[in-house]
């Protein structure tokens, strides 16, 4: 893996983290919708599409996906996969700093377990 590809992966990860944060910000503004019929689901979907922050997230994911396509064409997935664990740390920190989520000891410990697990699963 070249440095260029590594930087591209890192940038794609940051885009993806940004997307999740913007999505969450948008989702927080949703009321508890009734979901009893198909009509309710369609109304719910349209409500999602009316949130501006969600669209910002969509733009971010498009940038990230374009980068991933280039990465995938260059590198084997098995090489790029373990690097995915960085994302969990970024998201944990971001949900604390940007979303104001309360992190207790159990949640931090659980996330660290997950990260360690991914590194073990993804490395061959």
């Amino acid at each position: 893996m070249t440095l260029k590809i590594f930087m591209l992966i890192l940038l794609a990860e940051i885009c993806s983290a940004g997307m999740h944060i913007l999505y969450k910000k948008g989702a927080n503004s949703l009321e508890n919708e009734p979901t009893k019929s198909i009509k309710d689901y369609i109304i719910f979907a349209f409500k999602i599409l009316k949130i501006p922050v969600i669209w910002c997230g969509l733009v971010m994911v498009c940038c990230g996906m374009a980068m991933w396509l280039i990465v995938l064409a260059h590198t084997d997935l098995s090489v790029a996969f373990p690097l995915d664990s960085i994302q969990y740390i970024i998201i944990l920190a971001a949900s604390f700093f940007f979303l104001g989520e309360k992190l207790n000891r159990e949640r931090i410990m659980g996330t660290l377990f997950v990260v360690l697990g991914i590194v073990l699963v993804a490395t061959k």
Binding site: E106, R107, G110, T111, F113, L116, G117, L120, V121, T123
Partner: peptide, 19 residues
């Protein structure tokens, strides 16, 4: 090693769910 990793992930999700 991968089985151990899977065990770690399950443990992690258990803690997160408890939180």
């Amino acid at each position: 090693a991968q089985w151990t990793g899977i065990l770690f992930i399950i443990t992690g999700i258990f803690f997160i769910s408890r939180s």
